[in-house]
């Protein structure tokens, strides 16, 4: 046994011998990997896949999309945090695990563990119900809950998600009571409202748009800063004086702490150019996102703001950090 095993170990050592990796002077020397914290088809996956071809062109190098889903995004965030800051591993995902997730749970990463490259797609939380309910808008719904405290059920996209926090905050601000039923994602939450299993649902607005357009669901409110031009009749929470319940849901790019500034700038510039491409904008709008480029510093500010809002809501609603 010994001789053969020693030979084998020698082979192992030979193959593992360290070899210098590419220099940053001619970045990108080989394909850059974008780590996505969602499974294929998830919300943060669709956005990056839509901009991928244009981004690749504007960036001037190959970009590989790699899904590392799991633990509500924590696996991908941790992976990128630990990755070499050479610009070849970039985190491409939605802000929620970083902003909302770190507020709800003790996680091995935080807001300051990354370089912010920029944000490009903004989603909203949508509150929907079936058209044949007793209310026709948000005010009607809230009044109905007031008359029937604790009677209604609402579907959410999950306990640790922004739509749940938003809905719980609205109810808490008005001193109302309704029971949350947590589903696994916005799609199932929306289906629960559609099938009449819950009275209304809060989830990602993007997932709801097709059914709202078809008249099978009614949009009661969205969380964004301004009304969606495709759905001018759906009011924002801000208009209703409930703006403090809004938590941003946006897609962006992050890099491991210590990534060279030149790399960040190159990616940021490519992202900005891509976000200005009308074809990209049109597709992202169709998928339910508003397109706006926010640079690294701005994105960091947004993240901090969302994080603080989440913490405030948790305090007001009485959710403890786990």
């Amino acid at each position: 046994m010994p001789r053969r095993s020693l030979l084998f170990l020698f082979v192992v050592a030979l193959v593992c011998l360290p070899i210098q990796s590419a220099h940053s002077a001619n970045y990108p020397g080989y394909p850059v990997q974008f780590i996505i914290s969602f499974p294929p088809g998830g919300p943060g996956d669709t956005t990056i896949r839509i901009i991928h071809p244009a981004l690749q062109k504007n960036f001037g190098g190959a970009i590989q999309l790699v899904n590392k889903p799991g633990a509500g995004g924590a696996i991908a965030y941790t992976y990128v945090k630990k990755a070499k800051p050479d610009g070849y591993t970039i985190l491409s995902t939605m802000s929620a695990p970083l902003t909302v997730g770190t507020a709800l749970r003790t996680l091995p990463f935080g807001l300051d563990d990354y370089e912010y490259i920029g944000a490009y797609a903004f989603g909203a939380t949508g509150i929907v119900s079936k058209p044949d309910m007793r209310w026709k808008n948000l005010d009607g719904l809230l009044a109905y809950i007031k008359k029937n405290p604790g009677k209604l059920n609402y579907g959410t996209s999950g306990a640790p998600t922004a739509p749940y926090l938003t809905m719980a905050a609205i109810l808490a601000m008005q001193g109302l009571k309704a029971t949350p039923v947590h589903y696994k994602g916005s799609g199932p939450a929306r289906n629960a409202a559609l099938g009449g299993h819950v009275d209304f649902s809060a989830g990602g607005f993007g997932a709801m748009q097709a059914l709202i357009r078809a008249g099978k669901l009614v949009g009661l409110a969205i969380t964004d800063n301004a009304r969606d031009p495709k759905f001018p009749k759906i009011p924002t929470l801000k208009e209703k004086g409930l703006g403090r319940a809004s938590i941003g849901l946006w897609a962006g790019l992050w890099a491991p702490k210590g990534t060279p500034k030149a790399v960040l700038d190159k990616l940021s510039a490519a992202l900005q150019k891509t976000a200005g491409d009308p074809a990209v904008v049109k597709k992202l709008n169709k998928a339910g996102f508003r397109v706006e480029f926010v640079d690294g510093a701005g994105a960091k500010k947004l993240a901090r703001q969302d994080h603080e809002t989440s913490k405030e809501i948790m305090k007001a609603v009485g959710i403890k950090k786990k």
Binding site: F8, V15, C16
Partner: peptide, 19 residues
């Protein structure tokens, strides 16, 4: 994730056939 796909595969195959 340490040595990359090709090296890991080679080592694994060598292990199976040799050891």
């Amino acid at each position: 994730e340490v040595s990359g796909f090709l090296a890991a595969t080679f080592i694994f195959m060598a292990f199976c056939w040799l050891v």
